[in-house]
Deep mutational scan, measured.
Amino acid sequence: LGPKYVGLWDFKSRTDEELSFRAGDVFHVARKEEQWWWATLLDEAGGAVAQGYVPHNYLAERE
Rank of each mutant, 00 (worst) to 15 (best):
residue 37 W to K: 00
residue 5 Y to G: 00
residue 19 L to G: 01
residue 37 W to S: 01
residue 23 A to D: 03
residue 38 W to V: 06
residue 13 S to P: 06
residue 8 L to Q: 05
residue 14 R to E: 13
residue 37 W to F: 06
residue 57 N to E: 10
residue 27 F to R: 01
residue 54 V to P: 00
residue 52 G to H: 00
residue 44 E to N: 10
residue 19 L to Y: 02
residue 12 K to H: 14
residue 25 D to Q: 07
residue 22 R to N: 11
residue 34 E to K: 09
residue 39 A to K: 01
residue 36 W to P: 00
residue 48 A to N: 10
residue 47 G to A: 14
residue 30 A to P: 02
residue 19 L to M: 10
residue 41 L to G: 00
residue 27 F to T: 01
residue 9 W to G: 04
residue 45 A to I: 09
residue 57 N to V: 05
residue 43 D to F: 06
residue 52 G to V: 03
residue 2 G to H: 13
residue 61 E to L: 15
residue 53 Y to M: 09
residue 9 W to S: 07
residue 60 A to T: 11
residue 51 Q to R: 05
residue 15 T to I: 08
residue 15 T to N: 13
residue 50 A to M: 08
residue 9 W to I: 09
residue 49 V to T: 07
residue 38 W to K: 00
residue 54 V to A: 01
residue 14 R to P: 05
residue 51 Q to C: 09
residue 12 K to V: 15
residue 34 E to D: 13
residue 36 W to I: 07
residue 32 K to R: 09
residue 63 E to S: 12
residue 32 K to W: 06
residue 42 L to T: 03
residue 8 L to R: 07
residue 13 S to G: 15
residue 1 L to T: 12
residue 35 Q to A: 11
residue 57 N to I: 06
residue 40 T to D: 02
residue 57 N to K: 08
residue 29 V to P: 03
residue 47 G to S: 14
residue 39 A to C: 08
residue 20 S to T: 10
residue 63 E to M: 11
residue 24 G to E: 04
residue 16 D to L: 09
residue 13 S to Y: 02
residue 15 T to V: 09
residue 34 E to G: 15
residue 51 Q to N: 09
residue 4 K to M: 15
residue 17 E to S: 13
residue 46 G to Q: 04
residue 61 E to R: 10
residue 48 A to E: 13
residue 15 T to K: 11
residue 60 A to L: 11
residue 30 A to V: 15
residue 33 E to M: 09
residue 58 Y to A: 11
residue 48 A to T: 10
residue 26 V to Q: 10
residue 63 E to P: 12
residue 10 D to M: 05
residue 32 K to G: 03
residue 63 E to A: 13
residue 43 D to Q: 05
residue 35 Q to G: 13
residue 33 E to F: 11
residue 23 A to L: 05
residue 47 G to Q: 15
residue 32 K to V: 04
residue 19 L to E: 04
residue 63 E to W: 11
residue 26 V to W: 11
residue 39 A to M: 01
residue 33 E to K: 07
residue 22 R to H: 13
residue 7 G to A: 15
residue 8 L to I: 10
residue 11 F to Q: 02
residue 60 A to K: 12
residue 54 V to K: 02
residue 1 L to P: 13
residue 4 K to R: 11
residue 46 G to Y: 05
residue 41 L to H: 01
residue 53 Y to L: 08
residue 12 K to A: 12
residue 24 G to H: 02
residue 51 Q to W: 11
residue 41 L to Y: 02
residue 52 G to E: 02
residue 22 R to F: 12
residue 50 A to P: 01
residue 4 K to E: 14
residue 31 R to A: 08
residue 50 A to H: 04
residue 6 V to P: 03
residue 34 E to F: 08
residue 27 F to D: 01
residue 63 E to R: 09
residue 25 D to F: 08
residue 37 W to Q: 00
residue 13 S to W: 05
residue 3 P to M: 11
residue 31 R to V: 11
residue 47 G to I: 14
residue 28 H to D: 08
residue 16 D to G: 10
residue 20 S to Y: 04
residue 59 L to M: 05
residue 52 G to Q: 00
residue 14 R to A: 13
residue 50 A to K: 10
residue 41 L to E: 00
residue 31 R to E: 07
residue 8 L to W: 06
residue 54 V to F: 02
residue 43 D to G: 06
residue 50 A to F: 05
residue 42 L to S: 02
residue 43 D to W: 06
residue 25 D to S: 07
residue 22 R to T: 10
residue 1 L to R: 10
residue 46 G to I: 12
residue 7 G to W: 06
residue 14 R to D: 11
residue 43 D to S: 06
residue 28 H to C: 09
residue 15 T to F: 10
residue 22 R to I: 08
residue 58 Y to D: 02
residue 18 E to W: 14
residue 42 L to R: 00
residue 55 P to Y: 07
residue 34 E to W: 06
residue 44 E to F: 08
residue 27 F to Y: 01
residue 45 A to D: 14
residue 39 A to W: 05
residue 13 S to H: 04
residue 23 A to F: 03
residue 20 S to W: 06
residue 55 P to N: 07
residue 6 V to K: 04
residue 39 A to N: 00
residue 35 Q to R: 12
residue 24 G to M: 04
residue 59 L to G: 02
residue 38 W to L: 09
residue 31 R to C: 11
residue 59 L to N: 04
residue 53 Y to N: 02
residue 42 L to A: 00
residue 42 L to F: 06
residue 28 H to F: 15
residue 56 H to T: 07
residue 51 Q to I: 09
residue 16 D to F: 09
residue 27 F to M: 09
residue 54 V to G: 02
residue 2 G to E: 15
residue 2 G to Q: 14
residue 59 L to F: 04
residue 63 E to N: 12
residue 3 P to W: 09
residue 40 T to K: 03
residue 6 V to N: 04
residue 48 A to Q: 11
residue 61 E to S: 08
residue 51 Q to M: 10
residue 6 V to H: 04
residue 22 R to Q: 11
